[in-house]
Design a protein around this nucleic acid. Sequence first.
DNA 1: TCTTTCGCCCCTATTACCTCA
DNA 2: CTTGAGGTAATAGGGGCGAAA
Length: 347
Amino acid sequence: MELALSLGDAASPFTFLHKTPKIANKDLGFCMALGNNFSEKRSDEKKDSRNGEDFNRTPSAEPPVQLDLLPSVPVPRAHTSSQFRFPWLADNMVVSEPGSSEGAGKGLDVNRLPMIGTTEETEDGAALSSPNSTVSSFHMDFGVRRSKRDMEAIETERTSSRVSDDEENGSTRKKLRLSKEQSAFLEESFKEHSTLNPKQKDALAKQLNLRPRQVEVWFQNRRARTKLKQTEVDCEYLKRCCETLTEENRRLQKELQELRALKTSQPFYMQLPATTLTMCPSCERVATATTTVASTSSAITTTANPSAMSATTTTTSTALSLSKPRITVQQQHHPFSHLHANKAAAS
DNA sequence: TCTTTCGCCCCTATTACCTCA
DNA sequence: CTTGAGGTAATAGGGGCGAAA
């Protein structure tokens, strides 16, 4: 029997809760697609989250930049085995590996000392029980087999938790370290929804034995990290664009110099009229109209391929604006009526 | 109906702590 | 053992938005 707990509204449960085998087996690598208007949709998202409505954002109109984040959280070996499972997904029947000293009932909660038979009242008023407590709605039993190093880390975490608990009454700032399992689950949640409504937040906090505030802060920081990462990606992309355009500019400048040199050596040839290229926006035909040209005009070749033409046009204007040559590539609204009329007449 | 107040949430910048090389 | 860098939880301040008065 499998108990799948829905976080938050039934209307918008975390779908990954229904993917237990997948979670148990797949690499917890993180992949997401982000549009540029991540923050622009914030108002709507907020509205949605508050209403508990559809959390899945509509994709951005712009093609998203695929961002592959390698597992930021080192995934324990057990994540890739059938041993690992989110306890709130199944019925806590975690089968430990034979010989493993880390059997079921580890009840790891790095943020609280295991206090058997006691419950804690958090500052948020949510009763949090120790993992071993019968009051607990579930056990933080990940059944993860850990290495000695991991165990040392856990001990460290516990120590820091202890310190944190001690400091909870003091004025010093507390710094808790989330366990790998907690982080992994939060990552899964984040993949589902980058924002949480209060119900989902509370449910998540309860399941992870964290305070709702901690879940909230984690999501805030996670969004900030995502945005930072996206900014880096965008920056890199713009940098490459700039390099490409610079190179294209350089190439066109060189081409212009060659043409000028050619003009100097063959003045009569260069007195041929320049060409005005005009492309019909609807049929994408290019019409050539010969115009009267001054002696300084340059000959430019272009292409009728619309996409290539647009790129060429852009870079050409960029490059040639420096010397202000008289080259025109026009896109008129419909100056091709004569062409269409002739074509119709011919047919 | 408009304005004000309040609470909640988010973002951003920053701090403080922890881990690791 | 020390130290500096990097990661990240936590804090502070400010703004937007909706609900209630």
